[in-house]
Amino acid sequence: MRQLFNQLISFPYFFKIAQISFPYLFLLSILVILLGVLWGVFFSPVDVTQGEVYRIIYLHVPAASVAQSIYYTMVIASITYLIWRIKMASVFMISMAPLGAIFTFLALFTGAVWGQPTWGTWWVWDARLTSTLILLILYLAIISLFSSFDRRASTDQAVSIVVLIGGINLPIIKLSVEWWNTLHQSASITLSGSSIDNEMLIPLLISIFGFYLYVTAIGMRKMQVEILKREISHNWVKEIFIEKR
């Protein structure tokens, strides 16, 4: 187990694994997403109250789920980096943050598209929407840190500090936004919990799974690029690319 872990955090080994597995993973993720979304759009029943438009959940829910999960994995990576100085952890954070931002934006965007016909408004200052917006701002702030330092190691550490503090703070922000919301909520819109039918749930779960596969594949690719940027002068990089020719 320990050996496997050590191999995975070594740049050359990871690079090779990613190089081999990327095409399969990517193709699989596209297939699974297509399966989930097409099933959801064409074969699952129509929602009684919302009509056809509810079908955007097959994009919205997976995007929102991925957006949050990426942040939590980044928090784990930041702790790993701060304690054990494992460089792979910082490569992970720096590669995943832009993906997180994109998926958070996608979640907000699909949410707005869904909200307009359903509740008649693009945006409500609901607790969940507000904290998602803050998550987006947090991602963008982290990305803006990338170019603030002359030293590679300084960027890595600064990003880990901010990710970690943000991670500690995120649940607190969520809670406080919820309290704020219960006090201010005057509109009758609540976005929480209507139960979901099994026939809708299965394609939704498939779609979520597909999104996670997709993020894994793209994330690995981005990590490869980041590793190349850092290790360009190392011998193993030269060996790989000379072999190719």
Binding site: A141, S148, D150, I161, V162, G166, I173, L175, S176, W179
Partner: peptide, 24 residues
């Protein structure tokens, strides 16, 4: 965090973190 540059990046990181204090 931004000792060398002292730019706007710093405050944009910090404002979202301060939200709980503001809200409470």
């Amino acid at each position: 965090l931004t000792l060398e540059r002292g730019n706007i990046v710093g405050s944009s990181i910090v404002i979202p973190m301060c939200l709980p204090a503001l809200i409470l």
